[in-house]
Write a protein that binds this DNA or RNA. Structure first.
Lengths: 346, 346
DNA sequence: AAAAGCTGTGGAACTGGTTCCACACCCTAC
DNA sequence: GTAGGGTGTGGAACCAGTTCCACAGCTTTT
């Protein structure tokens, strides 16, 4: 351990153990075919010399880098949502002796695909085996990814403007069923005037709205979309929407928010106006971020299993790498409706 | 681009351009010494064949992987604080054409150093040039890192139980001066009864407490440490502490919280009891996480420049790699006191 | 005119592993 | 006794780059 471990190569070990280089390689890769005594002798020499094989050299021959790239696109920062997914990717990867490279990318949805300046690591060859696309994914990025011939898996919830089938692997969760269930819960609790708060220019809010609308249709209730222009953030959006909603007649008794941040914005405004949640108005969020449970009352919301999504992305990517001919597929993971304290029975 | 870009090697390009392999290499590395016409011919051949050099092969010769590992230790999840630091690391790294590998590690502080099971990527040789240690760093991990002879930089604020000088590079921020300034602000606003809320078993809270205490000493005020046992989380800790503090006589008019989460816990409990912030009690946090600005009133707190810390870590690591003989140093970055709405003038 | 110096280029040798072929050796079968 | 089969091992060739030495061809100096 203390001997300088630098320049010891497989040939040094071979000489020290009095065997050929091939034998060292066989011992390292435990590919049978080595006698018990020889193996012991080699292992002893390895330990004595402090030999650590150079993984780089192996990678050339194997034509595998055993590394995948987690590519976060068009995000100002690594939001807890994606941080959790990254963590899921890492945990699955480390179990499979794979490495995860983190890279960020900023690009315009309107730029030509071949003009997208991918991170350095994707421009060279052999550094990574595959990519997990996170962040916001526009069609031009997908086309760019295809052009470099590297297998990839995309987080389908953040894919923009691809309605039909697409020729790539995807992992996502079921926005529609999630708000369907959440809204059914509200109607089950006796609510009739239920609004949905979200900006439908985002496809995921469209899907969530559709689930909400379906549940409303089932009960023959009138869906109400509450939106606001010029919001600086989701929280700001929530605050603006709250103001609007409270001006409506009839006043809604419950709001399904497009995500937890919007719900927080709603809550903040309501609180400031002295409107009690859930006594006067019920609230449902979406995502179940850390803060949801810390709100007062704790927010009833839809939990997205972020680690599991990350793990599934990694798993799917490895399957693709092992079997490049496999048909493309989309895996949809279930969400979980978490009942806390922000919904009241009427 | 559409030609199968796989197996094209430098020798294929050499043949296509009618030059030797050395020339291709010279063109790729733009190491002068190539005539204008030859360079043009080579570049044309590269483009025509869709050649992308294999970085793996280069790395063997260069003995550099151009990759660093961001190692998150003993964290259940990638907290926004560390996510921001990771992002700083990545942004600086990508500017320097370096890659960032994300890895997680869980270990016991009491296990022997050589028993710590480092991530796969650190066990092999040549995969990474250096490590950035984030998360909680105990002495045994430091010793383990030293044993593998890989340069590393540690986030010094999370180093546990190393009081004296240490033989490694560190980047941190100044806990002491931060709370010193924050507490001076409170005394400047006329506060006399000021408590500090934090668990001193964490070294960073010790340093923050020391800064608070110094400011109190300057004004000949009595420091009050408010702590609670058995808390499940920092937020929970804050709630328990709030309860205690409000029972004290004289009742404090202000509290310096060890971090924003504790401040949030305090705020939550106070709110529930109908105690108004800042009218009845003022609050100062630490960290300036995203949520601080969203609290009601927005939290006056100490901003830690997380991206900058990450960038500095990366910068320092690169300096170490270029100059291995360089003396070890500790870089302390300033914090910023951010005045919002949770402190009132008396 | 010869010597010295410079630039540009080819290609062998090299990096540090893996793979595969050849072969030695031993055991069993005919 | 020899043919056949299995096992264990050595080492050359290989992967895909970089580096460096030798040398050609030209210009400049003595």
């Amino acid at each position: 351990m203390e001997a300088v471990p630098r320049k010891t190569t497989i040939r040094d070990v071979a000489e020290a153990a009095g065997v050929g280089v091939g034998t060292i390689s066989r011992v390292l890769n435990s590919s049978s075919q080595v006698s018990r005594e020889t193996r012991a002798r080699v292992l002893k020499a390895i330990r004595r010399l402090g030999f650590r094989p150079n993984a780089q050299a192996r990678r050339i021959l194997r034509r595998r880098s055993e590394t995948v790239c987690f590519l976060l696109s068009n995000r100002d920062f690594l939001h807890p949502f994606h941080a959790r997914i990254l963590q899921g990717v890492e945990s699955y990867a480390s179990g499979m002796k794979q490495h995860v490279l983190f890279a960020a990318l900023h690009y315009s949805p309107r730029i030509a695909a071949d003009k997208i300046d991918l991170p350095h690591v994707l421009q060279e060859h052999g550094l990574i085996d595959g990519v997990i696309l996170a962040g916001t994914i526009y069609p031009n990025l997908l086309r760019r990814m295809e052009s470099i011939h590297v297998p990839f898996v995309a987080l389908s919830n953040n894919v923009m403007g691809m309605d039909g089938k697409s020729a790539f692997d995807q992992v996502g969760f079921d926005d529609f069923s999630a708000t369907l269930e959440a809204t059914r819960h509200l109607t089950g609790e006796g609510h009739r005037e239920i609004a949905f708060a979200g900006d439908l220019s985002f496809p995921w809010f469209q899907r969530r709205f559709a689930g909400y609308r379906e549940a409303m249709r089932e009960k023959k209730l009138k869906p109400v979309l509450a939106a606001a222009k010029g919001a600086q953030s989701f929280v700001d959006f929530g605050q603006r929407v709250a103001q609007r909603i409270m001006g409506r007649r009839p006043k809604p008794s419950a709001v399904v928010a497009g995500n937890d941040e919007i719900a927080y914005g709603l809550w903040l405004w309501l609180r400031r106006q002295g409107v009690k949640v859930p006594d006067e108005i019920s609230l449902v969020g979406f995502d179940d971020r850390e803060e949801a449970v810390l709100m007062d009352p704790p927010l009833t919301t839809i939990r997205v299993h972020k680690e599991e999504i990350g793990q599934t992305c990694m798993k799917m990517l490895l399957e693709r790498l092992h079997n490049p001919q496999m048909a493309f597929s989309q895996r949809i993971l279930p969400t979980e409706f978490v009942i806390r304290g922000s919904v009241r029975h009427i």
